[in-house]
Simulated assay, not measured.
Amino acid sequence: MSGQQVGYLRVSTQEQNTQRQLDGVELDKRFEDKASGKDTKRPELERCLSHLREGDVLHVHSMDRLARSLDDLRKLVKDLNARGVVVRFHKENITFTGDDSPMANLLLSMLGAVGEFERTIIRERQKEGIVKAKERGVYKGRKPALTSEQVNALRSRAASGESKALLARDFKISRGTVYKYLNAGIINC
Rank of each mutant, 00 (worst) to 15 (best):
K164D: 02
V25S: 09
G37N: 09
G129L: 05
D170H: 09
V11F: 10
Q19P: 00
K132F: 01
N81P: 08
N17Q: 15
Y181I: 13
F171A: 06
V86S: 13
G137Q: 04
R157N: 09
L154Q: 05
N105S: 04
C189M: 02
D170W: 00
L49K: 13
D23E: 15
I122W: 01
M103C: 00
M103Y: 13
F171L: 13
F31E: 08
L58N: 10
V60H: 07
Q5E: 11
C48N: 04
G55Y: 13
K180H: 15
R119A: 10
M103I: 12
D56G: 05
R169W: 08
R74P: 00
A113V: 03
Q5P: 00
F89Y: 05
E44N: 14
K41V: 14
I130Y: 02
F96H: 14
D79S: 13
K172I: 00
A82P: 04
L106H: 11
P102G: 14
L182Q: 13
N188M: 01
V6D: 07
K41A: 13
R123A: 14
R123W: 00
S36T: 13
S12K: 02
E54S: 15
M1L: 08
A165K: 15
P43F: 06
R157W: 09
N188R: 14
S50C: 12
Q14S: 12
R47T: 09
I130C: 06
D39G: 12
I94R: 02
L49G: 03
G176P: 10
D64Y: 06
L49T: 07
Y179F: 11
I130T: 12
K140P: 02
G115H: 06
P102D: 14
H51P: 00
M63Y: 07
G185A: 15
V25D: 09
V60D: 04
G112M: 05
K29W: 01
Q16A: 10
Q4F: 10
S50Q: 14
D33L: 12
G24I: 09
T40H: 03
H59M: 06
L52F: 08
D79P: 08
F89G: 03
N17W: 06
L154T: 03
D170R: 12
R123N: 15
N17S: 15
A159M: 09
D99P: 00
E135V: 10
D64C: 06
Q5F: 05
D23W: 03
L182V: 15
S156I: 01
